[in-house]
């Protein structure tokens, strides 16, 4: 599903996708650490990198990619993540679990959000 509006909050730390009456809201940090780029995801699950220290990250700009995705450009220079509408929906649906897993992964690896 294609959102009607994609809204970046004033402090640039929160992205809202509006689909009619439903909304999904995700933080820049959440989107950054779950970037679908090969550089983060690797080419297999085993290669997935844990991105840490992104509590303060914000989104500088948003580009449409064709009709199927957006590219988010973060202020830490990360600009290779192409987020398809489908991926954004999956992220939003699984938000709580993905976040919990992320936090425990950070802990396991001795990393943190700052």
């Amino acid at each position: 599903m294609i959102p009607e509006n994609i809204i970046l909050s004033e402090n640039k730390k929160e992205l809202t996708l509006e689909y009619g009456a439903t909304k999904s809201v995700m933080s820049a940090e959440f989107l950054r650490v779950n970037s679908p780029s090969a550089e983060v995801k690797g080419h297999s699950p085993a290669q997935k990198k844990t991105v840490s220290g992104k509590r303060a990250v914000s989104i500088n700009s948003i580009e449409l990619v064709g009709n199927y995705a957006i590219k988010l450009i973060f202020d830490d220079g990360h600009a290779t993540g192409i987020y398809t509408w489908q991926y954004l929906q999956e992220l939003f649906k699984g938000k709580d679990k993905i976040w919990k897993d992320y936090i425990s992964e950070l802990r396991k690896k001795g990393l943190n959000r700052d």
């Binding site: 294609i2 509006n5 994609i6 809204i7 970046l8 909050s9 449409l64 009709n67 957006i70």
Partner: peptide, 10 residues
């Protein structure tokens, strides 16, 4: 009209 999302940056 329906397929292009608006990008709104406040």
């Amino acid at each position: 009209s329906s397929s292009k999302p608006n990008i709104i940056i406040n």
